[in-house]
């Protein structure tokens, strides 16, 4: 055989992890696009998605397909809430010194971090710090044979969901008035305001959309891995953030490509490195990318990025 089957399976596993990073990275990219600020609480949205999914499953035992719209709704609500609490208050400073002040920019960054700490601690309080198991009926771990390759059903679900969501996002961004608003605000917030776009509403919408993607990623990983915890959002959050930056901050295809690259390289790395070292691969890729492409792989020199 030309391909090593095991290797191919690792690549597929990697792609499904990469899809999860990608869904989160898109959220980061959208939000960074409209606000020029990193949303540190994005990982918590992911965790909330997973926990709400679990709660619904244990309480109502609905069909799997019914869980998804619910998680989407929860994601949207938490995104809107997050924007209200952690970001909007800082838009009250419109004088020039504040706009150009680094202290102000870093304050917004840390306000989302503070919100994420509070959220995580509250979840710890409610659910405890330990791993929570997902009811086995909902697990997506059945092996499915595709030719000689065995793939977990979860991988297939992740691929399908990601494809649908990416398609929907593409439609939203390029075929709707809302999407036009998001793209306009990302391009030039002031200009967008001058042509009559309600920037506040656009920003809220962006948070809702980004958080829907993040929350979905959370429940998918929960079903795939079989266990969730209040800390689960941290690692993929950092990876997705890294993917966004490697992709050039403002490019969604770039972020997706880099997220897939990270997922696959991590998965392959576990073949010849002990799992402790696999993060070294991610971060080496990041640092090497930045040294040779200071604006990311798909960036185009955005001012004051």
């Amino acid at each position: 055989m030309v391909f090593d089957v095991f290797f191919l399976q690792q690549v597929i596993n990697g792609l499904s992890i990469g899809c999860v990073y990608a869904l989160m990275a898109i959220g980061f990219t959208l939000i960074f696009g409209v606000l020029n600020v990193v949303n540190f609480a994005h990982g918590e949205v992911y965790t909330i998605g997973a926990f709400v999914g679990l709660m619904v499953i244990t309480a109502l035992a609905p069909p799997l397909l019914a869980v998804v719209p619910l998680v989407l709704a929860v994601g949207a609500v938490s995104g809107v809430g997050l924007e209200r609490i952690a970001f909007r208050p800082f838009r009250r400073f419109t004088d020039e010194a504040s706009q150009k002040s680094r202290a102000m920019r870093e304050a917004t960054l840390l306000s989302s971090l503070a919100v994420s700490i509070v959220t995580r601690e509250i979840m710890m309080h409610i659910f405890g710090g330990d791993m929570q198991g997902i009811p086995s009926g909902y697990l997506l771990q059945q092996p499915v044979a595709i030719g000689p390759i065995m793939v977990a059903s979860g991988s297939l679900v992740i691929f399908a969901t990601s494809a649908v969501m990416l398609g929907a996002l593409q439609f939203l961004l390029y075929r709707t008035q809302t999407g036009l608003g998001i793209r306009a605000v990302s391009n030039n917030q002031l200009g967008a305001r001058y042509v009559g776009i309600n920037t506040d509403r656009t920003i809220v919408t962006t948070f809702a959309v980004g958080s829907m993607l993040g929350a979905t990623a959370g429940i998918l990983v929960g079903l795939y891995d079989g266990a969730i915890s209040p800390h689960m959002g941290f690692a993929p959050g950092v990876k997705a953030f890294v993917a966004m930056v490697m992709g050039g901050l403002s490019s969604i295809p770039g972020a997706v490509a880099c997220a897939l690259l990270l997922g696959v390289s991590e998965s392959i790395a576990t073949e010849f490195l002990s799992s402790g070292w696999k993060d070294l691969i991610t971060y080496s890729l990041l640092v090497i990318t930045l040294v040779f492409f200071p604006q990311g792989l798909f960036g185009h020199g955005r001012e004051r990025a």
Binding site: V38, V238, F241, V242, V245, L249, Y283, S284, L286, V287, L290, P294, Q295, G296, R304, A305
Partner: peptide, 11 residues
């Protein structure tokens, strides 16, 4: 510049 540097230090 700015956030790229920040992410490099994170990495």
């Amino acid at each position: 510049v700015s956030i790229y540097f920040a992410v490099a230090t994170l990495g």
